[in-house]
Design a protein around this nucleic acid. Structure first.
Lengths: 339, 339
DNA sequence: CTGAAAGCGCTAACAA
DNA sequence: TTGTTAGCGCTTTCAG
């Protein structure tokens, strides 16, 4: 059996209460007793029992991480998976454990909460779309601190982390404009919040550069490689193809490059391509991908620290924006001069 | 507050014990009472409290999944990450939750157990190397059912899942020999168990084909893209370069292709390349990668079901081998005829 | 500054 | 077939 506070109490000749207090650093215990308790706790290899703590509603040093999507969305998940990974590391650094809730179908947020809270988690990390009023209400009413990944929403207990999609898209357009591009396409329009943000950034920067937003150059599609390939082909076949394409994700960008190639257009010589995410592999694509690094390190640090603030200091939820970095590699170049 | 068995008991006019029994399908409760209990449980939206269950040592429907490595190993992790993902889905399908233990440094198995067991997990999924006697002992003595990913080890409570590395490497060699290759390299030798297995399969198939194992063609290295690139360059620079290369992982294979290209060798025209893993992205590499699909679906299903068997039916640990599939794509071709 | 009592939700053992 | 009692390990009153 594992060591309990009773074992320590017996050893030190005191009560369990005092041990519990001492171990949590209460000032109500004399320095001398505290020291003896801490020392024997260490000696005995005491580990607090999170289940017992959780049962009475105390903190468990546990966050739930929710994968809430249909498996069809796997493509975008490569990015989400990498993010999960970094967050797991970050949480472990801060001495928190992650409890994973992975469902095959996108469930209402209320349901997610009620499946996860009984496990006594101190907080929830969530990446779902908020589609409807019910979800919004669930978030507004929750008592459990929550971090929303990539959603522009916050409430008393909910912090929304917005990555630099808007600003990243603007940066991407600017980068292309500086290199002489004037026909710049956007591939990957959808009703996902991140997509909307990226498209909005694109449109604003296009306008700012004094260019027309050409609907023909905006492709509505999913975010995976296949979708990118189709988009690449379609754009290549246009009577007047774009000289640059901003893709919704890195995977999509890789597909776009392949699609263009099928139609005889080369990257970056004929067309420049920019992605979003900066996946681990993107720097190894051929050509190496110019992309928006979403700064998963910052996102993870921010997610975990916001959550800890809400849990431990009872601070309020807020809206946090994390700017992305444009990483220029080989898939973008100067516009091809008209012959 | 959440609904408890007491609430149900009150509603049905019986005791908590009866409710508990009924809900767990005991035969000691009359069909009539059972039905009433189940019905009102559903009506009230009862969710059993896993913390209370865990506290008394009962089942919690929770497995620990351990990421136990230094972050330097990230490369190989893309494969491990994808595996995690599939296992998480599979577990959720079987109504189990995953509890993630992610540490920055590879810890002794004993320590991992003692950090994870207090959370009341029913079983542990582990992908660590077993380097020493201490780890081996920890596994032999554990009371908690455990599945070891990719390790050839089993004991009373431990099932070892061995993926088709050996057989996959043999298949790869055979595939190449059939296409006329006789100088076949292996890139990615290391002391990781999976690597040893792959190399052994390679060596056996090479010998079987009546070829010599040429030490010059066996490159000792890590498993990431960079290592692959270096290996590719090195092999290309050989006085007599290989006509085919088997790489330890897909990422490495992608690196090898890049390295070869730097030295003016093209895949598959000059050199054929085969990887291991079949990552989600591998089919989109250029050229599309021929690789050993490790069958993550089967691995996940097997991991979860073995664990459940051990947990619920108290069956013994065993050694399970999961064969891989060679997926032939565009990175392998016939040997280039000598001009 | 310290301790005794009670209870979180559940189940195993024992009793009826 | 059903119910009573006790206890898992911890923390929060409340009393010394």
């Amino acid at each position: 059996m594992a060591v309990t506070i009773y074992d320590i109490a017996k050893e030190v000749n005191t009560s369990a209460v005092t041990v519990s207090l001492a171990l949590r650093g209460s000032k109500r215990v004399s320095a001398a007793t505290k020291e003896r308790i801490v020392k024997t706790a260490r000696k005995l290899g005491y580990q607090p029992n999170p289940l017992a703590r959780g049962l009475i509603g105390a903190k468990t040093k546990t966050f739930a991480f929710v994968f809430n999507y249909s498996s069809a969305d796997f493509a975008h998940d490569l990015s989400y998976m990498e993010l999960f990974h970094v967050i797991a590391q970050e949480a472990s650094k801060q001495d928190y454990k992650l409890f994973v809730h992975s469902s095959m179908t996108a469930k209402p947020i209320q349901e997610v909460f009620s499946e996860v809270i009984p496990y006594g988690v101190d907080g929830v990390i969530l990446g779902t779309n908020i589609n409807n009023e019910t979800d919004r209400q669930a978030l507004e009413q929750t008592q459990v601190p929550t971090v929303l990944l990539g959603r522009d929403f916050y409430s008393e207990k909910v912090t929304g982390l917005v990555y630099g999609g808007y600003q990243g898209a603007r940066q991407a357009v600017k980068h292309l404009v500086e290199r002489g591009h004037r026909r710049i396409a956007f591939a990957g329009k959808s009703n996902i919040e991140a997509s909307i943000r990226r498209l909005a950034g694109y449109a604003s920067a296009i306008a700012e550069a004094g260019l027309q937003v050409d609907e023909e150059l905006i492709i509505e599609s999913g975010w995976d490689v296949e979708a990118g390939e189709i988009a690449g082909v379609r754009l290549a076949k246009l009577p007047q193809p774009p000289t640059a394409i901003i893709a919704g994700t890195d995977l999509m960008a890789i597909g776009v490059i392949a699609g263009l190639k099928e139609e005889g257009l080369n990257v970056p010589d004929d067309v420049s391509v920019i992605g979003f995410d900066n996946l681990h592999i993107s720097r190894f694509s051929i050509p190496a991908l110019t992309t928006n690094d979403m700064r998963r390190d910052l996102i993870a640090a921010s997610a975990v620290s916001s959550l800890i603030d809400m849990v431990e200091k009872d601070s309020e939820g807020q809206r946090v924006t994390i700017p992305s970095d444009l990483v220029v590699r080989d898939s973008t170049g100067k516009v091809k001069p008209l012959v």
